[in-house]
Design a protein around this nucleic acid. Structure first.
Lengths: 154, 154
DNA sequence: ATCCATCCAGTAATGATTACTATTTAATAA
DNA sequence: TTATTAAATAGTAATCATTACTGGATGGAT
């Protein structure tokens, strides 16, 4: 669980970004960010929509999409999860990487000094300038491993 | 460019896979794989479709999608490129990683001993079993860098 | 408190991918 | 080689996530 302080900090940071970029810090935007900043689940758009709806029943799905695009543009959040159909989001912009369960889609954060110090190979450097490294470990999460072992459920 | 030998080898390997798994090695499937195995471009579905159409004019887009799914299931090809909308494919199943140009979508292969030896952090290992590591370097390719420098084109 | 550019709700449109069905074909054996 | 049959294909419709559009609503500077 993310601490209230941490969540509040991220929301406050967004308000600062709004002033700088001249975009409005509306109720909808704050709630969407608050929702994302308060979880480690890396939710998808539909999930964020459902949850924000509990606070703002009339909010539209398009607003959620638009807001997430805006937040990403401003560098406040990031898109996570390769290949898969539904895009998932992360309000943690500190340097970290992801473990993804191929079965249930669970995403977990981890850090790695090795990856942080990763020297770009000459071979790759020759292709162009490198802005970032995206790393994803793929596997089967603990929970899915357990369930695979005891197929007692019918 | 991929050598004819290499391409032929990949196609032959697929025929073997077909016999083992009891799926038919049809003309369409062979041509789709031949197309993908003969390029280093990591093409998307539409591109593969257009190219195979030159050899099999009546082929349907659905067949291309179905075949690529099949090839991926059998471990003959891989999906590449995170986040983006159009999925791209790679017939090179040897251990390697990708450089992706955020501007034009160019994808290049590279290898890295550091990444191949990457020890899964305890933190990540606790989340579950790790099957694979997906690494992607994101940046701007040489060509796009050049074009950005001389904005003479109107 | 007012004004106006920006934003939002509701809904339609888009674009990639998948599903469906009647017809064709690959693979096996006679 | 030909017959047989399950599997594969072509053509097209359907689906699903995401994006676009529009008239009405709202944040925030004055």
């Amino acid at each position: 669980m993310i601490s209230r302080d941490q969540t509040a900090k991220r929301v406050a940071a967004f308000q600062a970004v709004c002033r700088i970029h001249g975009v409005k810090a509306t109720h909808q935007r704050m709630e969407i960010l608050r929702e994302l900043a308060g979880t480690e689940e890396h939710p998808d758009v539909e999930t964020i929509y459902e949850r924000v709806r509990r606070r703002i029943p009339a909010i539209s799905l398009d607003t959620v999409y638009r807001t997430l695009r805006l937040l990403e543009e401003k560098g406040v959040i990031r898109r996570v999860g390769s290949i898969k159909d539904r895009t998932r989001f992360d309000a943690n912009t500190e340097r970290h990487h992801h473990f993804v369960c191929a079965q249930c889609g669970m995403i977990g954060d981890f850090t790695s000094d090795v990856l942080d110090r990763f020297p770009v190979p000459r071979e790759a450097a020759q292709m162009g300038s490198v802005d970032g490294v995206y790393v994803e470990l793929r596997g089967r999460c603990r929970k899915c491993q357990m369930e695979a072992k005891k197929p007692e459920k019918r």
